[in-house]
Structures are given as C-alpha cells and as structure tokens.
C-alpha cells in the first residue's frame, strides 16, 4: 500500500485533511469577499449575537467594538497559519540540522548539542516566550522567532535518535566503504530515512505552536491591533464571556478544530509512513514515534 493510500484509509485523517484544506483556503484566499471589513469599528453594533438571534448580517455576531466576527475569524486565520507555519518551518530546519549533526558525529559534538537541547527542555517555555516578547515587542517576526525557539529541540531529539539507529545500518557502512564523505552520507543516505518522523513531528508541533501562539496572544503578547489571531480574539472576548459568550467561543472553536485537524493528520502521517508502527498500534493511536520519544533520554 502506498503512503497516500494508507493515509487516506483512516477516517480521522481524512477529516483532518479536509479541515486543513479548508483552513488553508481561508488563509490564502483574498478577504475581499467577506461581508464586512474585519477591522471596521462600529460601536453601535457592539456585542451583537449572530444567526442564533436572527442576525443574518453578522452571522457569527460582533465583538466589543462592533466588528464582524465572521470576517474577523477569516482574517485572523491567515495570520494564525502564517505564524504557525513560519515557526514550524524554522524549528524543523534548525532541529533537523542539529539532530543530524549530533547523531552522526557523536562524541563532543553530540555532547554539546545534547546539552543545549537539555537546557532548552529544562526552561519553562511560556516564561521564555513572555520574556523575549517583552523585550523585543510583539511583532509578527518576533512571535515566529520565539515560537520556533520553543520548538526546534523536539525535532532535534527525534532526528538524533533516528540518525543513531540509521547510522548503524549496513548500507551506511557500505556507503562509507565506497568512499562517500560525511556530507554525502548525511544528506544522501541518512536524511531520506528520517524524513517521515520529521514530517510527523512537524505536524504535531504545528498543533502545539498554534496553541502556544494563542496563549501568548491571549496574554496580550501577540501581534498588535488591528492585526489579530484567533488567540488574540479569545483574549478580546474574555472580559465579555458572561454577557457575549460568542466573542471568545467562535475563535476558541476554530483553534480547537485546527489543532484537532493537525493531530489527526499527524497521527495518519506517522502511521502511514511507518508500517511497523501502524501494524503494532492498530487504530488505537499509540505507537512508534510517541514511544520512541518517550524512551529517548
């Protein structure tokens, strides 16, 4: 069975993929079709309920400044995804390079890099992010940078463990005997064998980073108004949660859906690319990558 087919064979993964496609479409498409300008303030319409109260003009209601929540949610999707994808891309690249170096060269390189990973792991990540953003200010780039800094070591640990396993294989020994240099061995022979766990980790990390970004934005440490993310929208709605529940609930549900979708797809990817884990774990969701992460020192 091919990877794509195995991926499509799980219902949860299919649901996750559909949701992800939907969210990506929301993020990529222009916002000109939206019913209202997502940043337009109209205090006369503040905290109006939506369809459930017969309001067809703002189907998801309005927030405390009278901004349309539907338009705002779509507008925020773009930034939420850009921040998440940007951070995960940087974290994956850095984590992969560090993992490859540590796993392949072993010795003092491994010791130094592993120590670095341990130090990062021991640090409370939200505290680090809050401190860095407090110093740099809450901008798009600083947010992406901080989130990447709280994530790269997860990939690094997984890659290092995989490299250690792959390095002991006969074909690596054979490549060395045929005169392949370190660079060729690492990038031509080892990297392709660790790509699947990297992809799976990246998907899970994406879900985690969306949540972390939401937490930071909720604390007011995210992007500056009028830009917004779903986390920032929840923060906005916090003060009105008793009177206007929808202001915080709509972005909350969207975050939940996005995180669940990424987790479904991550589970599917992990199993589809690792037939052993699929066979051993079945559809219970445990398995290969997770147990590997758990046993890694």
């Amino acid at each position: 069975m091919g990877v794509a087919r195995r991926l499509g064979s799980r219902r949860a993964t299919r649901v996750g993929l559909v949701f992800l496609a939907l969210f990506l479409a929301l993020g990529v498409w222009p916002t000109s079709w939206l019913p209202h300008d997502p940043t337009e303030v109209n205090l006369g319409l503040a905290n109006r309920p939506g369809l459930w109260a017969g309001n067809w003009s703002q189907p998801l209601g309005t927030d405390f400044l009278g901004r349309d929540l539907l338009s705002r949610s779509v507008y925020a999707a773009r930034l939420t995804l850009v921040i998440g994808l940007g951070a995960v891309t940087i974290a994956t690249l850095v984590g992969t390079v560090v993992g490859l170096l540590a796993g392949y060269f072993a010795g003092w390189v491994d010791e130094v890099l592993s120590w670095l990973i341990d130090v990062q792991l021991a640090f409370p990540m939200i505290a680090l992010a809050v401190a860095v953003i407090a110093v740099l200010g809450g901008s798009l780039t600083s947010l992406i940078g901080v989130l990447a800094a709280t994530s790269w070591f997860t990939t690094a640990r997984v890659v290092r463990a995989q490299v250690l396993a792959v390095k002991a294989s006969l074909f690596i020994e054979a490549a060395g005997a045929l005169g392949a240099g370190s660079v060729r061995t690492v990038f031509r022979h080892i990297l392709p064998n660790v790509v699947s766990p990297i992809l799976a980790v990246a998907t899970f990390e994406m879900a985690r980073l969306v949540l972390t970004e939401s937490a930071l934005s909720f604390l007011g440490l995210g992007v500056s108004s009028p830009q917004t993310t779903w986390g920032a929208m929840i923060g906005d709605g916090r003060a009105y949660v008793y009177e206007s529940w929808w202001v915080a609930t709509v972005p909350g549900l969207l975050i939940a859906a996005l995180v669940i979708a990424f987790n479904f797809v991550g589970d599917g990817l992990r199993d589809a690319m690792d037939p052993t884990s699929y066979a051993s774990s079945g559809r219970t969701g445990g398995g290969g990558l997770r147990s590997e992460q758990a046993t890694e020192p």
């Binding site: 940043t39 337009e40 303030v41 500056s224 108004s225 009028p226 906005d236």
Partner: peptide
C-alpha cells in the same frame, strides 16, 4: 484601556490617518 485604544485607532484610521498601535 486596550479596547478603548483599539477603538480610538480605528476612529483615526477612518479619517485617513495611518495609525500604528503600540500596546
């Protein structure tokens, strides 16, 4: 205070001033 700041920024934008907000 934050909500009021956002609203004031929006009012100023509405008359053509390009406001960058700092919280």
């Amino acid at each position: 205070d934050r909500q009021a700041g956002e609203a004031i920024a929006a009012y100023l934008r509405a008359v053509g001033i390009d406001v960058t907000e700092r919280t």
